[in-house]
Computed example of a mutant assay.
Amino acid sequence: MSKIGQKIKTFRLKARKTQGELAEVLGISVPAFSKIENGITDVNSARIIQLAILFKVNAGAFFEETDDQRDETERKQELLLKQQQATISELQGKLITCFEEKDELQKRIRETEAEVVKH
């Protein structure tokens, strides 16, 4: 469901209207209205203005995020940040291991070279 479709549904339910009632006022079929609410059909600006008038809201209200949507966005961002931090920590650990292995290999090379020089 699109964000605009969600808003339309929220406003419709708040107004205690059925899809059929609004579809009739807008001059469209119930399936067409359902597709708008479910985000299957995009809503043009003229339709948004019609809906804003019907719901007695500013047309911009269809584009504003609700507190719940902002909270969900923040939760997703926090989760992504934690995942990125975990990935960074894992990569840092691998990098440290690589440097330790490199140092160990250089030590073995020096020891091998020293053995070769002795013989």
Rank of each mutant, 00 (worst) to 15 (best):
M1W: 01
M1R: 04
S2Y: 01
K3L: 15
I4P: 13
I4M: 14
G5P: 13
Q6G: 13
K7M: 04
K7I: 01
I8E: 05
T10L: 08
F11Y: 01
F11R: 00
F11I: 00
R12V: 01
L13P: 10
K14N: 14
K14R: 13
K14Q: 15
A15K: 14
A15Y: 08
R16W: 10
Q19V: 03
G20A: 15
E21P: 03
E21M: 08
E24F: 10
G27P: 06
V30S: 01
P31W: 08
P31I: 01
A32L: 08
A32V: 07
F33N: 13
F33S: 07
I36P: 10
E37I: 02
E37S: 04
N38T: 05
N38Y: 02
G39H: 00
G39W: 00
R47W: 03
I48H: 09
I49V: 06
Q50F: 01
I53R: 15
F55K: 08
K56Q: 13
N58E: 11
N58H: 10
G60T: 06
G60Q: 11
A61L: 12
F62R: 06
F63M: 09
E64Y: 05
E64G: 01
E65G: 04
D67I: 04
D67S: 04
D68T: 08
D68E: 12
Q69N: 06
Q69R: 05
E72F: 14
Q77F: 00
E78S: 11
L80R: 11
L80I: 06
K82S: 14
Q83G: 14
Q84W: 07
Q85C: 09
Q85M: 12
Q85D: 11
A86D: 09
A86F: 05
T87A: 12
S89T: 10
S89R: 12
E90V: 06
E90S: 14
Q92G: 03
Q92H: 13
G93T: 07
G93P: 09
G93F: 04
G93K: 11
G93W: 09
K94C: 03
K94Y: 05
T97R: 15
T97Q: 15
C98F: 14
F99G: 05
E100Y: 02
D103T: 07
L105T: 06
Q106I: 05
K107H: 04
K107P: 01
R108P: 00
R108G: 00
R110K: 07
R110N: 03
R110H: 03
E111T: 01
E113N: 04
A114T: 03
V116T: 02
H119A: 04
